[in-house]
Computed example of a mutant assay.
Amino acid sequence: MKKKLAAVIAAAGLALAGAPAAMAHDSVIDATPGIEETVTEFPTELLLVFSGIPKDGFNTIALSRIDTNEVLFSGEPTVDRQNVSIDVPEGLDPEPGQYRIGFQITSSDGHATKGMTRFTYQPPGSSVDGAAGAADSDGAQASNTQDSADEQENIRSGYIWVWLLLGIVLVGGLVIALLGQRQRNVMRD
């Protein structure tokens, strides 16, 4: 009986320990061009590094100018473990300014995840006019992205509390069962 109970407690502990990690969607932890980086040469490849390993299929990356909201190109990226990349098409004629790398991936947890990073292209001898205005006009979208990230974090925190509460209830139930079994054994003797 004690071996079965120990096995149940161990299984419950493992389930509780792994549950919060499974709730988290993958997020960008690094990028090339870097997040909010200013580059003097326009990239030939866009690379996003995620906190988990996105699943293949239904993944998209799009590059757009922030000041005009013009999508320059989009396509299905290559997924190599945590690295999600796409080549910038030849013949693209980029202008100095701020750019957005938008993405939609299937997170390692199976959920669709959307987001973006930004960089500024400023070749030598050029100036980025209207960068502040572009950032202001894009502020609503950046705010929405942050609100979405905050909402996901709140949901994850809520799930952690649910799992902790379930763990306490489970452990409490096991303690009561053990005490009841012990009481029955004492009454038999």
Rank of each mutant, 00 (worst) to 15 (best):
L47Q: 06
P33A: 08
R81F: 15
I105D: 02
T38M: 02
G115E: 03
R81Y: 13
T40Q: 11
N154E: 14
N83G: 09
E95A: 10
E76N: 15
G91L: 01
Q152V: 03
T40P: 02
A132D: 13
Q152I: 04
P54H: 00
S148W: 05
A31S: 15
F50N: 02
V128M: 05
G115H: 07
I53N: 14
T117N: 04
K55Y: 01
N144V: 05
E151W: 01
N144S: 12
E45Y: 03
Q98S: 08
E70S: 10
T145D: 11
D26G: 11
N69G: 07
T113L: 04
T32H: 04
A135F: 06
S108L: 11
T60S: 11
I86V: 14
E37T: 12
Q152F: 09
E70T: 13
E70K: 10
M116R: 06
P89E: 10
V49Q: 12
F50P: 03
A31E: 04
I35A: 06
D80P: 09
E70Q: 15
I29K: 14
S51K: 08
S107G: 15
S157E: 14
F42Q: 04
A131K: 07
D93A: 08
D150F: 10
I53C: 08
D56Q: 14
R100Q: 07
T106K: 09
Q98R: 11
S137Y: 13
S143D: 11
I155Y: 11
L46C: 06
G91M: 03
R81Q: 15
D129V: 13
I53Q: 14
N144C: 00
E37P: 05
N59D: 15
S148F: 04
D56R: 08
G139N: 11
D56M: 06
